[in-house]
Each structure stands twice: as C-alpha cells, then as structure tokens.
Design a protein around this nucleic acid. Structure first.
Lengths: 202, 202
DNA sequence: AGATCATGCTACCCGGCAGTAGTCTTTCAA
DNA sequence: TTGAAAGACTACTGCCGGGTAGCATGATCT
C-alpha cells in the first residue's frame, strides 16, 4: 500500500516530465515547470529522483526495454521467419508509436544522459540489432528473404520504424493498428518476402 | 577579398560549432568552448552571429536545403521513375552521410531553434516530402512501383535514409558511395521496383 | 494530550554561461 | 608620423535553474 502510493507518485512525475520534455526539450524544461504542472514543488521531485538526469534515464530505459522485448518475443517465438518478422515489426512499431514521446526524448536527449546510463541503454539496442539481423539471416537461409546485405537491411528497418516517432500524429489518417500493419508489410516487401497475407490469411 | 575573409571566418566558426554541438550537444557546448577551439574569444563569434541559436540555425538550414536539392534535381530530371528514384536516394543519402553531424544536430536540437527558423526549415521538409511522394506516384502510374500506400511509403523511405545519421561510422565496412548505392537498392526493393541494374546496367 | 515521524514546503545558495561595455592594438591612408 | 577606423580582447553583468537546509503541518501512537 505504502509502496503502491510511492510508485504512483513516481509514475505521475514521469508522466508529466515526458510531456514537458517532449514539448519543450530537456533543457527547455525546468524542474519547477514539472512541479508546477503537478501542483507540487521542486523538492517533492527530489524525494523520488536523485537528479534531473536520473529522471531522464528513468523515462528512456523502460521504453527501449519494451522495443527489445517486442522483437525478442517475436524473433524467438514460433512460425516462419516471415511470420515472425511481420509480428516483430508490428509489435515494435506499436511500441514506438504508443511511446512516441519517450522515444523522441531518448533520441534527442541522449547526450544529456550519464555515460553509464547511455552505455546501459546502448547495450539493449545492440541486442535489438543482433536479434533483428539474426531473424533476417534465418529468413535468407530459409529462402524466404532476398537480401544483398543483411546487417545494412537490419539497420534500415530499425531506422524506418524508429523514425515514425518523428512524423506520427495520433488521430491521423490511419488507426494505430493499421499503421503497424502497413509498416510490417513495407518491411516484408523490403526484405523481398511475399506478403504474409499471401501466406497465412487472417 | 574583404568579403571572402569574412565568409571564411564564418565558415570556420560554423565548422567548429558543428563538431562540438555534435559531440557534446547544443546545451553542453558553450560559446567559450567554441572560441577556445578556434583560438579566439567569445566576442569574436558575436561579430559574425547575433546569438547562439542563430549559429544553430545557420548550421542546420543549408544542410536541409542540400537534401531538398538532391531529391529535387533527381525528381525533376530525366529518366524513368525508377531511375530518378534511384538517383535521388543516392544523392540524398550522400547528403545525409557527408553532412552527418549537421543532420544529427538538427534532429536533436530543433527544439532550441526559434519558431521562425523552425517553421522556415519545416517548409523545406514539406517540399521534400511532396517531391518524394510525387515521384512515387509517377512510378505507380507508370506501373514501375507497386505500393499500397504512397504517402506512408514516402515517409518510410525518408526515415530509413535520414536515420543513417544515427548509425553511420565513417571509415566503416562500406565506402560512402557503396553505402549510398545499397540504400538506393533497398529503396527500390521497398517500392516493388526491379533493381535499376536489371534495367540499365552501368 | 503530548511525542514522534512522515511528508512536503519555503527560502535560499551558487555556479555556469549568454551576452555586453569599453579598451587595446594593429593597420592603413594621407 | 599621426589619426582614425577596424578588429579583437579583457573584464564584467545578470539571470536562470539545479540542488539543498531546515521548517511547518498533520497523522499516528502511547
């Protein structure tokens, strides 16, 4: 109970910090701004986070973890490489778009993280890249994908999806789920796979 | 002569600013740092730029202009849509990679620009997107490209290439020209075109 | 009721840095 | 050789904002 309340306060601070860092940038936001938005004062924040940069790390890392978890569960799951890639990209895109602000903040503000926090997160990103490359390799081995350069393609896919944080507008032309689906279709086309809908109609 | 020297000094300042902003971030770099790197003092910089953010704008805008010019000249040039897209992506990728630091700075630090400067640059980006979409549309009309969603694909391509600023390491596995070529090939595969090398061998 | 503890606030410090005022030096013209 | 103008430097100012010390308030326990 005591713990839950503490965790809730922490979440509220993070929520508001994400909103303001996203709108005004990390350096354009003061702790007083965040506190004011929450209807509290600056020292209150310091009872939950040791510093402003710790706050930044706390709102970046879990989001990168989610991205990694999305591709991991798809890559290590069942199905053909095509099916797994499709699933992985849908889930990954979903993370990027539903955590759009966190992702944007991470990419923009990584220079503000401590070296330790950044190394830590970059280790996760490295795992992400390895998993994706490995999945592409399996697809090529299975004759499902047709690629000239696996590692480059992996980076290209990662970039194409990550970049969605920059242009996505919630409430735009496409619903979130549709958008994820289309990004996955584009990805399959890019790796030279037949569309999954041709293989296993849903 | 007088003018040329002035322009040269301006360029040197920008050069050093790009280097430091790229390494340490805009807010992590002081004007004293830049001045020290140049072997001059802070007021010297103020004889060439009115403020720190003007310096930032001065190093972002021309790079975005180059990107736009790259796709424009390819899109409005001669050749089939496939050839033009291929050329455009090669040139665009080349801009992104040869101006990697400037691009990185722009995407990371745009929140630090004045509203006017940002609107100005975003107008260029809008033109970029329109040109790319238009080129894709022509390719579809000509039966060369096979796309479910032209606008989305245009964003995806733009993102995939732009993102290269985040992973490219000069002196890496591939030479710059090869990298550009492969990104263009990936793009063609993504839009469902036959590789240009199948069409017009070089 | 009084003691204790948790919780959040008021009020402050202080360092860093963008931007400036005014001086010195160098150059060049007459 | 002197005067003026340009160009760059020294030496400041002022403020913003991260971080903290210590106080007030109110709940809980005895």
């Amino acid at each position: 109970m005591r713990e839950e309340i503490l965790a809730y306060k922490r979440e509220r601070i993070l929520e508001e910090a994400v909103k303001l860092f996203y709108e005004r940038g990390f350096n354009g936001t003061t702790l007083d701004d965040i506190a004011a938005e929450l209807g509290v004062t600056k020292p209150f924040i310091y009872t939950h986070f040791r510093s402003k940069v710790e706050l930044l790390a706390a709102l970046c890392r879990p989001t990168i973890e989610l991205s990694l978890a999305a591709v991991r569960s798809a890559a290590e799951g069942a199905g053909t490489p095509t099916e797994r890639l499709h699933r992985g990209i849908i889930d990954f895109t979903h993370v990027i778009l539903s955590k759009q602000a966190n992702i944007a903040i991470f990419f923009r503000e990584e220079k503000n993280l401590t070296k330790e926090a950044l190394d830590d997160i970059n280790a996760l990103r490295k795992q992400f890249d390895r998993l994706l490359s490995q999945l592409l390799r399996e697809g090529v081995a299975a004759g499902e994908f047709h690629l000239a350069d696996i590692d480059l393609t992996s980076l290209a896919i990662g970039g194409m999806i990550s970049w969605a944080y920059a242009w996505h507008r919630p409430g735009g032309r496409l619903a979130l789920a549709d958008l994820c689906e289309r990004m996955a279709d584009l990805t399959l086309q890019m790796v030279g796979a037949r569309k999954i809908t041709d293989v296993t109609p849903v």
